[in-house]
């Protein structure tokens, strides 16, 4: 195994139940140490499922997982019991969208952070508390000493998300998974949290996977972007490449839908239709029914993965020809 931080190969996840959902279809993804990657996509595109799979949080009885996932050389899918516990929160940890639901309402925030530290590092309660205090200061919570003994409901939304980040980083994970951590926050608070995460990422040198549906947020936080659609990665590249030279028609549609520099009253170039239901495994390009540039080859089979540059890929038959602006 190489020294890659993350190496996902041909990951396929299927949920069984009354209806089968092909949530992730043949996803491969790799990250170097200390990289920040944004997973960009709409609801149902498989962003959150990928993160949950990385933490082994999917219900085993109803989930079929194929392929492989390695984090720092550890085979995630083979972990169970004690090893899985050490891995979760130690090697990889997660910040959720809704901190009010992710934090335990009956314990103080200091207790919750200290508990994680005691579990993973095996230190005494008072040492763990001082780590908790240090972490609250790192995430810029004013009067951190006093806040240690607050319950989650006593904190504002922005403060709770800071606590969540402190908890996730308390054991210095190598990889932080952030699942839309700023979506529930106000605009002026969102930018504070994004800048904080950027700073902590640099200080701790950890890798970050940041799931978002907002291109602007992806630009603020990440070096690289992978665009997901219908359980597949349709395009990957540096943030600059995606923003300046998005090649996949879906990426271009998303950029247009951001309304960043659309003239007022001008008709929006909306992507028609809605994402597919994923009840069957895709056999051709999933975006073809909505694509303005569709051609017979798109419906004939899965699109080829083109690589216009190193570590850059586009799953589209037309990726080689830069698409002229309509």
């Amino acid at each position: 195994m190489s020294d890659k931080l993350l190496d996902i190969r041909n990951l396929t996840i299927r949920f069984r139940g009354k209806r089968t959902v092909h949530a992730i279809n043949d996803v491969s993804l790799s990250m170097e140490q200390g990289e920040t990657l944004a997973l960009l996509g709409e609801s149902g595109s498989g962003k959150s499922v990928t993160l949950k799979a990385l933490l082994g949080l999917l219900p085993p009885k109803r989930t079929d997982i194929e392929g492989s996932m390695h984090v720092n050389g550890t085979d995630v899918l083979s972990l169970s019991g004690k090893a899985l516990q050490r891995y979760r929160g130690g090697e990889v940890s997660m910040v959720f969208q809704e901190p009010a639901l992710a934090l335990d309402p009956v314990y103080t925030v200091g207790h919750q952070i200290a508990e994680a530290v005691m579990r993973h590092k095996g230190v005494s309660k008072s040492d763990a508390m001082s780590v908790a205090h240090d972490m609250l200061e790192r995430v810029r919570i004013p009067s951190a000493r006093r806040r240690l003994s607050n319950y989650p409901h006593e904190l504002s939304g922005g403060m709770r998300q800071r606590v969540m980040i402190a908890l996730a980083l308390a054991c210095r994970p190598k990889l932080l998974l952030a699942d839309e951590p700023t979506t529930a926050l106000d605009a002026t608070v969102q930018i504070q949290i994004l800048l904080l995460l950027r700073e902590l990422q640099k200080d701790f040198g950890m890798g970050v996977i940041f799931v978002t549906h907002d291109i602007g947020v992806a630009v603020e936080i990440s070096e690289r972007v992978a665009v997901m659609y219908a359980g597949q990665i349709v395009e990957e590249g540096t943030t600059r490449e995606i923003i300046r030279d998005g090649r996949h028609p879906y990426t271009r549609g998303l950029l247009a839908a951001n309304l960043h520099d659309v003239a007022r009253g001008e008709r929006l170039n909306a992507i028609p239709g809605a994402p597919p239901a994923l009840e069957t495994r895709p056999e051709n390009c999933s975006f073809a029914p909505r694509c303005p540039l569709v051609e017979p080859a798109c419906r004939a089979g899965l699109p080829p993965m083109r690589t216009p540059a190193p570590r850059r890929r586009v799953a589209c038959v037309r990726a080689e020809t830069p698409i002229a602006a309509e």
Partner: peptide
């Protein structure tokens, strides 16, 4: 506080601190 949309000019300073 709007995200910048320009990877070469990302926001450097949060315009406000704290919550409303």
């Amino acid at each position: 506080a709007m995200p910048a949309m320009d990877p070469d000019h990302r926001t450097k300073e949060p315009p406000l601190s704290g919550d409303p």
